[in-house]
């Protein structure tokens, strides 16, 4: 008899870091567990809330500028706990603002340095206040084949929408999640998008990232299961017709097929 699998998703700062459709990612993780018969629950941790001692997947989205500063101060108080769990391979999906906050520092447009919690070896600089440019628009990127066995995945690209002014540069301890085919990604220069460190995925693709990238959603769930139940898992494939259609619409639009 198969044992009943359980997954806990911890949604960090759902009220403050939920700027634009970030909830879609939690919905995707939740449903894809549920559809496979994995028992799943979502716990929310807000400002002044305590991190759980044990969880399987952390999710944190982007926020409005003001909220991001509030959240950032709070997150600093959780730094040690969070870092410890990440080093023990807890899964973490960090989108946009959350991705930035996990880094070493954020240099504001006015030249002020905000020290990050430093879990990820990344640095983010806001453009000079005189620069009005923003990285905004649809994104298509090919997954980093050095860290993903892309031949075995049903899709080897990621698609989404980015909207950020911060320019993020990766250090040597993290690897790019993907390489840009259309859009900007981490910054306007080096064509990298997002990063991977242990079981942490950071990305600038906000909102409906996981629904249209079911292979990444499954990867996160699989990593979490393998860590929790210590073993290899081959879980049921789902019928991803609609996911793949929505994904390929963007590939087609930008002639990346």
């Amino acid at each position: 008899m198969r044992r009943k699998l359980e997954i806990t998703i911890t949604h960090l700062y759902p009220d403050h870091m939920n700027i634009y459709g970030d909830l879609g990612n939690v919905i995707a993780l939740y449903k894809r567990c549920e559809w496979r018969g994995i028992s799943v629950k979502v716990e929310k941790v807000g400002l002044k809330g305590r991190l759980p001692k044990e969880t399987d997947i952390y999710f944190m989205g982007g926020g409005q500028d003001e909220d991001q500063i509030t959240v950032f101060r709070d997150l600093l108080s959780k730094k040690d706990d969070l870092t410890e769990q990440i080093e023990k391979d807890v899964s973490f999906l960090a989108i946009c603002g959350a991705f930035q906050l996990l880094g070493k520092y954020f240099l504001t447009g006015e030249g002020k340095v905000i020290e990050g919690i430093g879990t990820l070896d990344i640095e983010t600089r806001a453009p000079d206040t005189k620069v009005k440019s923003r990285c905004i628009g649809n994104v298509v990127a090919s997954l980093n084949s050095e860290i993903f066995i892309t031949e075995r995945m049903q899709l080897d690209t990621i698609v989404g929408f980015e909207n950020h002014s911060g320019q993020t540069f990766l250090g040597k301890d993290v690897q790019p999640l993907a390489f840009i085919l259309k859009g900007f990604g981490n910054n306007m220069k080096d064509k990298t998008e997002g990063c991977v460190y242990r079981n942490v995925i950071g990305t600038y693709l906000h909102g409906s990232f996981l629904p249209k990238n079911p292979h990444i959603a499954d990867l996160i769930i699989l990593n979490a299961l393998e860590r929790k139940y210590e073993g290899k898992f081959n879980f049921d494939e789902l019928d991803d017709k609609e996911e793949v259609l929505a994904h390929k619409d963007l590939l087609q639009r930008f002639n990346v097929l």
Binding site: G21, L23, G24, N138, F161, N163, H206, G207, S208, P211
Partner: peptide, 9 residues
């Protein structure tokens, strides 16, 4: 709006 993420909100 170029971004359709709002469908998920």
């Amino acid at each position: 709006g170029r971004d359709v993420s709002w469908l998920w909100d």
